[in-house]
């Protein structure tokens, strides 16, 4: 059982969280100017890094999305923070 730090609620069990996406992706817009390849890259491509990774997660019980940095191999969590502009 891993435990993650919700910036709003504190340390909670992994079962309360849901992985959303790798951090740093921005939605290409407007749709009319986005190529199929650009859209596919946004929708589907991932780095799936082995080691340190920065990801967006959601704490299902409070509904807040946040950023988490962790090691995908050792599973050590090095920190979590609210999305930019969101006070925790």
């Amino acid at each position: 059982m891993q435990r993650f730090q919700c910036p709003f609620c504190g340390l909670r069990d992994e079962t309360e969280f849901h992985f959303a996406t790798e951090a740093g992706k921005s939605r290409p817009e407007p749709a009319e100017e986005v190529t199929d390849a650009e859209w596919a890259a946004y929708l589907h491509l991932n780095d799936a890094l082995k080691g340190q990774a920065r990801e967006v997660w959601v704490h299902l019980t409070c509904g807040e999305y946040f950023l988490m940095t962790r090691d995908t191999l050792t599973r050590e969590v090095s920190g979590s923070e609210a999305l930019p502009g969101r006070a925790s």
Binding site: Q2, E14, T15, F17, H18, F19, A48, K50, G51, E55, T72, L73, T74, R75
Partner: peptide, 8 residues
């Protein structure tokens, strides 16, 4: 439920 590369 957690994406990982660890075989555990």
């Amino acid at each position: 439920r957690v994406p990982t590369h660890g075989q555990r």
